[in-house]
Amino acid sequence: MHYEVHGRSDAAAPTLLLSSGLGGSASYWAPQIEALQPFCRIVAYDHRGTGRSGGKVPADGGIAAMANDVLEIVETLKLERFHFAGHALGGLIGLQLALQRPDLVQSLVLINAWARADPHSGRCFDIRIELLEKAGVAAFVKAQPLFLYPAVWMAEHAERLTVEEAHAIRHFQGRETILRRIAALRSFDVEDRIGNVMAPALVIAARDDLLVPYTRSLRLAEALPHSELLLLDHGAHAVNVTEPASVNAAMLHFLQGQGG
């Protein structure tokens, strides 16, 4: 497992673990790493089978196997407690960890996540899988921003998207990996156990998310025993990238409120 450590290194520094979505890359969190590293020690990692992390995604391990990958990093770094922020699939990993190892998870930040996938999200993933299988990697990658970003943001960042597209094609995680990761997030369902997550949680969503209806975050916030909700009108699925100032401010305020 490849991971990076940023920010404070003193013994009193709280640790924040960052877990990205389907892309699996630590670099997804660049806006948060820059803003939050003066406050805490940040650990960001590439998911198994993506980026610089080796190995293969188990055929039937689901989100639990991905949570075990995080525990491998936790053991390596000898972390006794940590805050955990996850985007979409990364948020599911956070929920799994909070249920599996509540002694470790001090708090959760869940960005456009869910306790059970919405049928609309399933339709979106069906379309993406069909693009991959019938049109190939380039088409799959080219369509990805449509599910992540607002149209105006894409228009204003066309050059950036061109660079990201070329990079994503060169470093594509592979057909088997992406299909297994999609299967894992689609099968994840903890709705009947979400009330057992005792860790304080900040739930963040955007009303204009095309991929995951924001109502999934509303249900999360209502079901989690100790939650706060930040619902933005704009920002789409990758809201922490497109609206970093609002998200960073909310995350910092929340984390500081957890007492380090």
Rank of each mutant, 00 (worst) to 15 (best):
H171C: 09
A236H: 13
D189Y: 09
E156Q: 05
A30R: 08
L36N: 12
R116H: 04
T162Y: 13
L220G: 02
E34V: 01
G94W: 02
A151M: 15
A88N: 08
G7Q: 02
K56D: 15
M198T: 07
A236N: 15
G90S: 08
Y3A: 04
L22Y: 05
G23V: 01
R101W: 15
L110S: 10
P200N: 15
E133M: 12
G90C: 06
E159K: 05
A183W: 10
T50L: 01
S9A: 04
M1Y: 01
L185M: 11
Q100M: 14
E133A: 07
T162E: 15
G136Q: 13
H237Y: 14
H157E: 04
E164F: 06
G174D: 13
E156N: 02
P225E: 09
D126C: 04
V241N: 15
P225S: 07
L220D: 00
F84K: 01
A138R: 15
P58Y: 02
N68C: 11
A184I: 08
E34F: 02
Y214N: 07
A30V: 07
F188T: 12
G136K: 10
R48V: 07
G55L: 03
F188I: 09
R219A: 10
R123E: 11
P119N: 03
L108D: 08
A139V: 02
L161T: 01
E75V: 03
W153D: 00
L161I: 03
R180V: 05
K56Q: 14
S9K: 08
S246C: 01
V74Y: 11
E165C: 05
N196H: 10
A184P: 08
Q106H: 12
L104M: 14
A250C: 09
A168Y: 05
T50F: 07
N248Y: 01
R216G: 00
A59W: 07
A184S: 11
L230R: 10
V70E: 01
L229R: 05
L224C: 12
D209M: 03
A12V: 01
R180K: 12
R160K: 06
V203H: 14
I194V: 14
A138K: 10
E165L: 04
S53R: 02
E130F: 05
D10Y: 00
D103M: 12
R101S: 03
I127K: 06
D233V: 02
A184Q: 11
G62S: 09
Q106T: 07
M198Q: 15
S227K: 11
A117H: 05
L148A: 05
Q96Y: 14
R52P: 04
R207I: 08
W114H: 13
A135T: 15
G235R: 06
I129S: 12
P14I: 04
A236I: 06
M154D: 14
P38S: 03
E72G: 09
P225I: 03
